[in-house]
């Protein structure tokens, strides 16, 4: 009796979200895949058919180079974001409940302002005559304004700003779950603080770190707005090429082919994550 009910409950739980994701997520991706092997209409759109021409197009050294640079920028950005985020997540995890919620609130707060407006605010902050430069010059810290705006540094500032919350929150979540008695045991047994961190805290936080890396790396690869606003004349990334393909070039199949490739990269990340990281993180507390 109970098991039948259980199955029914399971179906009620599973099918609505499953159905939704298939219709509004899996099917659209499939359409993109179909586009990527169709012929191109001169004025946009696709003409049914089958061709691998657009994928061959991807191996054009020009696009390979842009792809390589996107990977490099995304990697550096991920390292920077991680370096800044870990200490904060660590601080939050060991703080009082009150401090925790206040920090959480402050970290989410920027999201309530439009992304574009935040980015343009950064422009007024780091411009040649922006607030930071004016402040530094006025206090005598530097003699001439720093040229940051429209360089790669500005792009990194933008990306780190954008990604910080997505890195801090997962790391915080896994640190917060940690069993404090382990730390006590470690230190009671004579391990130094550093050793305790290295052998206990760090391994326990790795799932969060990995989740943060995924949340940071992939979206950075696909972003086109930040390099456009903060970058210089040659800071385009793979996201800009996709956008251009769908708008200026009216070459949907090519845009779809790049997208399909990017989706493939994303899939690899997700499969790795689900196979190696999630099982560790997902173990119910009672078992551990």
């Amino acid at each position: 009796m109970r098991s039948r009910l259980k199955i029914r409950e399971f179906h009620v739980l599973l099918f609505p979200p499953l159905f939704w994701l298939i219709v509004f997520f899996a099917v659209p991706l499939l359409i993109v895949l179909i586009y990527s092997v169709s012929y191109r209409g001169t004025y946009g759109g696709v003409i049914p058919g089958f061709t691998l021409e657009h994928y061959r197009h991807l191996f054009d050294p020009l696009y390979v180079r842009v792809f390589g640079r996107s990977v490099l920028i995304a990697t550096i950005n991920t390292v920077l974001t991680l370096t800044l985020s870990y200490p904060i997540a660590y601080y939050m995890a060991f703080a009082t409940t009150r401090v925790k919620s206040v920090m959480m609130f402050l970290i989410i707060l920027p999201f309530w302002t439009n992304f574009m407006i935040r980015m343009y605010s950064i422009v007024t902050l780091i411009g040649d005559n922006g607030w930071l430069n004016n402040l530094f010059v006025a206090t005598g810290l530097i003699s001439r304004p720093l040229h940051i705006m429209n360089t790669l540094i500005a792009v990194f500032i933008g990306f780190v700003y954008w990604n910080l919350p997505f890195m801090v929150l997962p790391i915080f979540a896994s640190l917060d779950r940690m069993d404090a008695t382990l730390l006590e045991a470690s230190m009671d047994l004579g391990a130094s603080r550093f050793r305790t961190f290295l052998n206990i805290t760090l391994p326990q936080s790795l799932p969060g770190v990995f989740a943060g890396i995924v949340f940071t790396f992939v979206p950075t690869m696909g972003n086109f707005v930040i390099p456009e606003i903060l970058g210089g004349p040659n800071n385009i990334m793979i996201g800009n090429i996709i956008t251009d393909a769908f708008t200026q070039a009216r070459n949907w199949p090519f845009g779809s082919a790049i997208s399909a490739t990017l989706i493939f990269v994303v899939m690899v990340f997700v499969v790795l994550y689900l196979r190696y990281i999630e099982p560790v993180q997902g173990t119910p507390a009672a078992v551990r």
Binding site: P28, V218, G222, S259
Partner: peptide
């Protein structure tokens, strides 16, 4: 099912938007 849930989080937004429009 899990990958179906995870992919939307990290897929570049532009692909998401275009594919939905196509749908």
């Amino acid at each position: 099912f899990q990958s179906l849930l995870h992919v939307p989080i990290i897929i570049p937004e532009i692909i998401f938007g275009i594919s939905l429009l196509a749908l």
